[in-house]
Design a protein around this nucleic acid. Structure first.
Lengths: 193, 193
DNA sequence: CGCGGGTTTGATGATGCTCAAGCCCGGTGG
DNA sequence: CCACCGGGCTTGAGCATCATCAAACCCGCG
C-alpha cells in the first residue's frame, strides 16, 4: 500500500525508517472506481493525492470549448489543484478517475504538520515542484510553437504508453486540438511509418 | 542592494536578521547593460538570478519560428533555466537584459549549501516554485483554449504595465502570436474601448 | 440484435500566418 | 538643422492550418 510512496520519496531524498513511518501516518488510502471524481469544480481541493494504481485526469469544463484536459496522473505521480489546495479558494478544475484507482490522500493541515515533523520532506516537495514546473514550461513552449502534428509526435515520444491507456479524445484535448484533427494526424502518421 | 531580496523572502517566511546575513553572503551582485546576456544557448545555467532593477527576458531562438519568449522577469522576480541549473546540462534558452539591469546571483553549490545553513529557505523556494508552477499551468491553459485576442486581454488585465515596458513584438512572441496579429488586435480593441 | 459512445471521414469556413509594402519616429551624420 | 537611415509597428492580400458541422462507421455491451 505504501511501497510505491516509499520508493518515490527515496528516489529524491534519504529518509530513516522512523521518518517514513511518521510520514505514512499522515496519509489516508482511498479507492475510486472508474469515472468517480476526486475533486469537482467549485469545491475546495482539500487533499493532495499520490497515485498508487490506476489513472486520473484533471480537466476544466470550459464554457464553449467543452472539456479541456490539463493533466493526467499515473502511478507514482502526485495530483491536486495546487492553487485551491494552497489558498483554500474553490477550484475551477475537476479530477476524475479514468480507471479503478487507488490513491493516498493527505490534507493540507497534515501536510504542513508533516514538514515540522520531517523537515527533509520540504526538500522532497521542492524538488517535485521544480520538476513539475520544468515539465509544464516545456509543454507551454511546445503548445506555443509546434504544429498539431509535432505536438502529437512529441507526446508519443515522451510517453509512448499513454495512447493505450487513455481515450483518444482526451489526448486530443490534452494537446489542445480536436479529436477529428488527432484522428487525421494518426492516419497520416501511420502511412509514413 | 539587498533590500528587495530581504523583503521578498520575508513575504513568505520569517527569518532572523542573522539568518538573512548568512543568506546575503551567498549572493553576488551583477549589473547588465541593455541587450547584454545573462545566459546563452549551449552554456550551462550556473546561476539563479534575483532581479533588483530592470527587466529581462528568457527566450528560445527556434529554428523556423524565429525567437519565442518564454518569460519575462521584473524586479523582485527570480529567473534561470531551471532544467540546466539543476542538471548541469547545457541550456536551450537565452536570458537577456531588456534594460540596464541589476541582479543578485547565486551559484548552484552556494544555493545548496545555503539550505543546510538556513533550512527555512527550503520552504521559501518550495513556495516560490509552487507559485511559478501554478502561473505556468494557467498560461498553458490559456494558450490551449483562448483565442489570440483573449490571450492578449488576459495579459493586459494581469499585467497592465507590461505593454509600456517591453516592445510589442516580444509581447506577441510571449503570447504565441505574430506581431502583425497583435497589432491588429490592438487596433481592434482600441475602437471598442 | 440494436443501441450508443468513440473514432473516422468529408466538406466548408474562420482564425491567424506569411509575405510584402508603407509608415512612423528616433538617432546619426553631413 | 535637416536629410537619411533603420527598426519596429501597421496595413493589406492571399493562404494554410485547424475547427466546425455532419454523417458514417466500428465495436462492445445490454
Amino acid at each position: 500500500m505504501y511501497e510505491l510512496l516509499n520508493q518515490k520519496i527515496r528516489e529524491k531524498i534519504s529518509l530513516t525508517d522512523d521518518e517514513f513511518q511518521i510520514c505514512k501516518q499522515a496519509f489516508v488510502p482511498k479507492t475510486l472506481h472508474k469515472h468517480q471524481y476526486l475533486l469537482q469544480q467549485d469545491d475546495v481541493a482539500r487533499y493532495l493525492a499520490f497515485v498508487n494504481e490506476g489513472a486520473l485526469r484533471m480537466f476544466a469544463s470550459g464554457e464553449k470549448n467543452g472539456e479541456i484536459v490539463i493533466q493526467f496522473a499515473f502511478p507514482g505521480w502526485w495530483i491536486t489543484d495546487n492553487f485551491s489546495f494552497l489558498t483554500g479558494e474553490p477550484t475551477v478544475y475537476n479530477i476524475q478517475a479514468l480507471e479503478n484507482t487507488s490513491v493516498l490522500l493527505i490534507g493540507k493541515q497534515a501536510w504542513e504538520d508533516l514538514f515540522d515533523k520531517v523537515p527533509k520532506l520540504e526538500r522532497y516537495f521542492r524538488i517535485l515542484l521544480q520538476n513539475n514546473y520544468i515539465a509544464t514550461q516545456r509543454r507551454l513552449v511546445s503548445s506555443l510553437c509546434q504544429t498539431a502534428e509535432e505536438k502529437y509526435l512529441s507526446l508519443i515520444k515522451a510517453q509512448p504508453d499513454i495512447i493505450q491507456r487513455v481515450p483518444q479524445h482526451m489526448i486530443a484535448s490534452y494537446l489542445g486540438i480536436t479529436p477529428e484533427t488527432l484522428s487525421r494526424i494518426r492516419k497520416q502518421a501511420s502511412y509514413t511509418r
